[in-house]
Simulated scan of single mutants.
Amino acid sequence: MVTNTANSGNLLYWSSAGRSYQFTILVIACLALGGSFFLPVLSIEQQFWIVIVPIGVFGLSHGGADTSILKKLTATSKSNVLLLLLAYMLASLAFVALIWTLPLVALLVFLGMSVWHFGYTDEAFLSSERDLLLRCLSGSMAVLGPILGHPQQTSELFSWLIKIETSAVLDVLVWMGPLLAGLWLLGFAYMMLRKSNRPSLRVLAEWCLVGATLIVLPPLLSFAFYFCVIHSMRHFLAISEHCLLSNQKSLAKAFPARKIIPSTLGALVLAIVAWGIIVWIEPSPSLLTEAIRVMFWALAALTFPHAIIVRLWWDQRPAE
């Protein structure tokens, strides 16, 4: 489960930028936890309007370096870049087809892919070694938190995505949530008792504060907190530490706008067009429902190829 071979995650685990930002995560989590006690009960619609801009800005732009990653994977060969770019687009379209024909399967694949992708990014900042168990525990928190803390609203969101009754989804989540939480705690107990690569104090502090925040916040705010504050920013840090877009390691200078903005705007335009097409083909009495579908399914369609190429780039980097 754990290998002692040096890997590219070492650089990020020991980096001063990664450690400093982890402190920022803890501070934001504390503020979010404190603020949650004064937060009124928010409907899904209210949550949607709060998170749409952060998710659009941070969520979409964090994949803006994908074209540069493709170039790295193909040693700058233009023909190979075009082939990989075509494969990237076909993978997204294939996932859209899966959403259209088998939405339940698509949702399960999306959740599984998210856990894998989130965990792989977290692992580089939370462990100096490859650790499958740590990856699973950390990556699953963003999915498990809303299920445990707000099963009713989470069920409603899932039901909109797969177009079935909310009560049917809730019936599954009310027993699956505690079961998954029990498995998570068993994995955590094993990690604490094993002889090697036990989580450090800073990892435990992050898991406690972030886990509590993900449970307490309403589901869309919980997702936005993890996706924007933790995952996207850590992706930015990984890119800047490895000088993928710029030879500057400063986070503010590592992302030339000309390389990030076009792909981000393109993704936004595609999402808006997709929303219009869905509303035209399958009119719904609730535009909010369609907006939620477009937001999550657009992220899902982009996550599928994005997670794969990021993993390929991650594994091709020289050991630190």
Rank of each mutant, 00 (worst) to 15 (best):
L73P: 10
H306Q: 10
A32R: 04
F23G: 03
W160L: 13
W100V: 13
H150D: 04
M191G: 08
S36R: 05
F158I: 15
I230V: 15
S200W: 01
A168Y: 09
R234H: 03
C228T: 11
H242E: 13
I278D: 03
P103S: 01
I215M: 05
L161Q: 10
E290R: 10
M192Y: 03
L104G: 15
F223W: 13
I215A: 00
L302E: 02
A307L: 02
Y13R: 04
P283L: 06
V172C: 03
C228E: 02
A168C: 01
A300C: 05
F304Y: 08
G187F: 03
A97Y: 12
V174F: 00
A205N: 01
W207V: 01
W184N: 04
L70P: 07
C243K: 15
A32V: 10
L90N: 07
H306A: 01
A319K: 14
D171L: 12
L132E: 09
L251V: 14
W297R: 12
M192V: 10
I261S: 02
F48N: 08
L265H: 04
L214K: 10
G211T: 04
N197V: 05
L161Y: 05
Q46A: 14
F23P: 00
T166K: 15
Q316M: 14
G187Y: 08
T24E: 03
H231D: 04
A301R: 00
G59L: 06
L244W: 01
I278R: 06
I55H: 00
M233Q: 09
T67M: 11
F158Y: 15
V210I: 13
S36Q: 01
P199A: 02
S240L: 04
I260F: 12
H235E: 02
T289L: 07
F225K: 08
S127F: 03
M113T: 10
G63S: 07
R258W: 11
S127N: 12
M295E: 05
F58R: 09
G56A: 07
L104D: 06
L217M: 02
I52P: 00
V27C: 08
A238L: 07
V105Q: 07
A65M: 09
Q316V: 01
